[in-house]
Design a protein around this nucleic acid. Structure first.
Lengths: 206, 206
DNA sequence: CTATTTACTGACCGAACGTTCTGTATTACT
DNA sequence: AGTAATACAGAACGTTCGGTCAGTAAATAG
């Protein structure tokens, strides 16, 4: 939570070197704090301390605290929604498309860890949060549809309904946010492979 | 969020019938609101509205907002920690003990849905929250140990390390909190069966 | 050299926060 | 009947909240 700044810096008359932020770099800091403390548990005092900027200076870059939330949520939702219309998600067998969606989800989760974490912790207290929850529901519905097709094609077990299977699948995937740290060496690719394998075949030795 | 009260009621001079709370019944209401809005997103105004009591009257039953949080977290952690020393968790093969822990976890999640949800959404902002996170870590470590034994006994796949497997297992289990509603007919028993089967054998048709 | 823009600050605002205090009916006890 | 305890409410507390504003120093443009 100490001031960890963006690339550009500028020298002040006092001789201090302080970070010079723009909307993008400030958002990075803010979302990191949001994911650590929760959105409601984060005050401008926290953002101030984490960025090295004063409260009022933060307002030079943003319009409101909720704008930071909205921008953060967009950075998670945009690639997630986009993944559902990519080639891999629209061609091949339902099982192939499902595998693609799972893999892309893990990748996006790895690449945008704090943003997706923010999204997954949303409660629905504000209009912005309810919008994000709506987007998530749309995404879930699309995936559940693909699961249903995979069941119909005989590739996914038919003893559990598609909606529940989809929910359990993304339950496991999304839980990755609670412990996965890319800097520890496991690549998003390896992680995606691991999770996909667990989901398809379970934990039992064969 | 409308005032839904406890069993006992008393008649006021105005003719109104209002709930008469004690610590236990008030906790039920508070934890329900906490899980809906998040702890930090819940003010005494919200608790007041949900209970039908005034802000100051709530303080007749409790000492502080954080006490409500602590009591709520205890109601989730106590049965969870207790499950690790029960017969089923200490006798039999590692795989049998793991299955027992998984099943008990799903049961506890079902029976104490709001309390466990509260626990799983904790951020670590207060001393109470950090204590709860520590308890969770202890629990996770115990389970990871059993997974390791199950790997050694050849019943769980050895290509993923025990810690990661344990995390993914409980990632799927705990995600149940986001959609499972006991009143919709699925019993905790059925749910436990379903989740266990998914975890052991995966989603693939066989 | 001047004017404008950019990045930032301290002082301040009203509202909301968790909490406390004083008071009042109702119930329980003797 | 009198006393104590219980269960509440209204008003107010100091603090912190998200947000505004007037101003300054440095960088940029003309």
């Amino acid at each position: 939570m100490s001031p960890t700044g963006p690339a550009e810096r500028r020298r002040l008359p006092s001789g201090d070197v302080r970070p010079t932020y723009n909307l993008e770099t400030l958002l990075d800091v803010a979302v990191r704090v949001f994911t650590e403390r929760g959105y409601d548990g984060t005050s401008f005092q926290h953002l101030s301390h984490a960025s090295g900027l004063s409260k009022s200076s933060i307002y030079h870059h943003i319009e409101s605290k909720e704008q930071l939330l909205r921008l953060g949520l967009e950075r998670a939702l945009e690639p997630l929604m986009a993944s559902t219309t990519e080639d891999g998600a629209t061609t091949g067998s339902a099982m192939q498309r499902l595998s693609y969606l799972v893999r892309r989800n893990v990748e996006i989760l790895s690449e945008r860890l704090p943003y997706v974490t923010l999204l997954l912790n949303v409660h629905g207290n504000t209009e912005t949060e309810r919008w994000a929850l709506g987007q998530r529901r749309d995404y879930d519905k699309i995936v559940a549809g693909v699961v249903q097709e995979a069941i119909d094609e005989g590739d996914v077990r038919a003893d559990v309904d598609a909606r529940t299977t989809a929910r359990l699948v993304f339950g496991m995937i999304n839980s990755v946010r609670e412990w996965y740290r890319p800097e520890r060496g496991v690549t998003p690719d390896e992680l995606a492979e691991l999770v996909t394998s667990m989901l398809l075949d379970g934990i039992r030795a064969r």
